[in-house]
């Protein structure tokens, strides 16, 4: 009997990517003269394609001395044509259906993943983090909720129930997931990224993106703190088109995790929205 980690990992192997990126990959790769960076942009805005490519490049087949945590790095390491053909083979699995039995809205999921990625990248720059690491922040933001999509595909009945219960108990999804499935989506994301040798920083940030209790998360880890905040920021921005200011709770979270370092951004939802828009254009959503 396979354990849960192996069952979920097997399921991810056959999981198709998001329809918008599958269509774009097919379109771009049909033209020999298409722009390579456009293809890379599409891959790096799709959590499923990104996870699968990072999984392969970090696999024991490649005796890497350090983890590869971005698509650009994967391209420099494995070569453009190999990454391109990996994207084609992922695209050939098919497309994630718009409707799934669990009732997880995949457009909203993708929007949230990409916007969390874009915000994480932006805020890491604001905090003076080096260019080299900015892309790691983007990738972690993109993958932070990966466990949800895995649940929706592998345990659709159970996850449907969890999402139903969440509606009447907002902000308690973690607890509900644990009650129904025994694990929550942060743990699943962490388990899979561990199995596939993704960086320990990324694993931590995925695993602690809902943890608030002092002492239960590494409070001096910038990536953990960023993903915790950008997950919330992105939800508030997605929740209301005309949002003029963030909730008091979020403002206080930002202050407690970053002091005044991110003040400028707390004041301007409009600026953040612009950044998200820039990222979403790669997927036409």
């Amino acid at each position: 009997m396979k354990n849960l980690q192996e069952q979920l990992a097997d399921m991810v192997e056959s999981m198709p990517a998001f329809p918008t990126s599958v269509k774009k990959v097919i379109e771009l790769t049909a033209d020999i003269n298409s722009n390579h960076k456009d293809l890379v942009k599409v891959i790096e805005h799709d959590p499923i394609m990104t996870f699968k490519i990072l999984k392969l490049v970090n696999s024991p087949y490649f005796g890497l001395s350090r983890e590869i945590s971005s698509i650009n790095h994967s391209v420099v390491y494995m070569g453009l044509n190999t990454v391109k053909n990996l994207a084609i083979s992922i695209a050939s699995i098919g497309m994630l259906p718009n409707e799934n039995e669990a009732g997880l809205n995949i457009d909203k999921f993708l929007y949230h993943s990409v916007s969390t990625a874009a915000l994480s990248h932006l805020l890491s720059k604001q905090l003076g983090i080096s260019n080299k690491e900015n892309s790691d922040f983007f990738v972690t933001g993109l993958l932070h909720d990966f466990g949800k999509i895995v649940f929706s595909q592998s345990l659709p009945k159970e996850y449907k129930k969890a999402l139903y219960l969440e509606r009447s108990n907002p902000n308690r999804l973690i607890e509900i997931e644990k009650n129904i499935m025994g694990v929550d989506h942060t743990q699943v994301g962490m388990l899979l990224s561990k199995k596939w040798n993704l960086s320990s920083q990324l694993r931590k940030a995925i695993g602690f993106h809902h943890t608030t209790k002092s002492g239960e998360y590494p409070d001096n880890d910038v990536l953990v703190n960023i993903i915790f905040i950008t997950n919330k920021l992105s939800k508030e921005l997605q929740g209301s088109e005309n949002l003029k200011s963030f909730s008091k709770e979020l403002v206080s979270d930002i202050k407690s995790r970053f002091g005044n370092d991110l003040d400028k951004y707390i004041e301007s939802p409009e600026e953040l929205r612009k950044e998200i828009k820039k990222s979403l254009q790669f997927l036409n959503i």
Binding site: K37, N131, N134
Partner: peptide, 23 residues
């Protein structure tokens, strides 16, 4: 030898150059 797929004005240009040099 790998070449930069980005243009100098792109955000990723410098990052990509560093990755190439490192490699």
């Amino acid at each position: 030898f790998p070449y930069n797929i980005y243009e100098p004005e792109d955000d990723s240009y410098e990052d990509y150059n560093n990755l190439i040099n490192q490699r």
